[in-house]
């Protein structure tokens, strides 16, 4: 709470996977996801928005890592065209799709 109130919101948020991995991600990048964006919206002041810590009980570490990677990938390339495709291992495809659906990314 203290971190988030100092000079507005902290720049980073923590994403926690179901099996306990934590990813510290740039807030702006994470807000690529509609669900996370709303989760962290200071106006509605849910628990996550006050702590800056989002726990996803349905997403395991491997998938969440890929998700975080994607956040950065799309953040980095946000204003560009002709961006090369991101490398996605086929075995993760389905779960990533479900995570994307869940997170509204």
């Amino acid at each position: 709470m203290a971190t988030s109130n100092e000079g507005g919101l902290s720049k980073y948020v923590t994403l926690v996977s179901s099996d306990g991995f934590e990813f510290v991600v740039l807030r702006e990048a994470a807000c690529k996801s509609g669900a996370i964006k709303r989760m962290l919206d200071p106006k509605s002041s849910f628990a996550e928005s006050t702590t800056g810590r989002c726990t996803f009980e349905e997403i395991n570490g491997i998938v969440l890592e890929k998700v975080a990677e994607y956040f950065y990938y799309s953040y980095k390339n946000r204003n560009q065209e002709d961006v090369p495709d991101m490398d996605i291992p086929p075995e993760l495809c389905l779960e990533l799709l479900m995570a994307a659906d869940f997170l509204d990314t």
Binding site: S44, F46, E48, C54, F56, E57
Partner: peptide, 15 residues
């Protein structure tokens, strides 16, 4: 009293 609530949990429930 929303700050007590976990958005993720509620979101997951509706999901």
């Amino acid at each position: 009293n929303a700050s007590k609530l976990s958005f993720e949990q509620l979101y997951r429930a509706s999901y």
